[in-house]
Amino acid sequence: MPGRREFLNTLMRGGILAALGLLSGAVIFRSRDEKSCSYGFDCSGCSRSKSCMLPAALEARQMVWQLDMTKCIQCGRCATNCVMSPSAVKCTHAFAMCGYCDLCGGYFKPGTKTLTTAAENQLCPTNALKRKFIEDPFFEYTIDEELCIGCGKCVKGCGAFGNGSLQLQVRHDRCKNCNECSIARSCPAQAFTRVPANKPSLLRGLGPELPKETAKKNQANG
């Protein structure tokens, strides 16, 4: 009797091991897909051939959460629904897109008459957006991340009147990278996606990445 029991146990153990092996094999094998390529569709700059068969899972990419501004409607939930408080989502300024406007839609409350930095003129609820005179008629706007709560008010103002250089982004020095992002769950536009950790930004208007060659050259020079 004990002998038969032992045998059955061994058999089951083998079975479970095999099942776990099959499961992991299937999961890894199924990730062998162009869409899940951690270089993200773009095969240029990838050393492997286009008919790449290496399962993406084997690339061992960590994934992090990011916000796609093309979908975002600035509902304010990034400020309220993050497990962190204040939120790990912050306004990020793509300076390259900024018009350095005097009358900045992201800085001033709509209808502001005198364009001064007086607190009652500021749109930002925490005065995190800072305005600095550069030269006539340009002003630089920067974000004090310690103060920013990621509400997206300035983002909406900038997008409505300006170029949309103020954008909401998950700041990965703050994000806990929850297995499931609680903002993603409540995002009405389903604008949150997982992106490879080596490309953590979805900031618009910074243009295409430098080609690898140039980056290498810069690295050598710098």
């Binding site: 390259a96 950790a197 900031l203 208007g205």
Partner: peptide, 30 residues
């Protein structure tokens, strides 16, 4: 380095006459 990017042409930056240099957007790494 891999994160530094070029401005796209649709948004050329203003022609500054002072010695102002445009700051790089800082992107924290995970």
């Amino acid at each position: 380095l891999p994160l530094i990017t070029l401005p796209i042409q649709r948004f050329p930056k203003p022609e500054f006459e002072s010695a102002y240099t445009q700051p790089q957007t800082f992107i924290p790494t995970p």
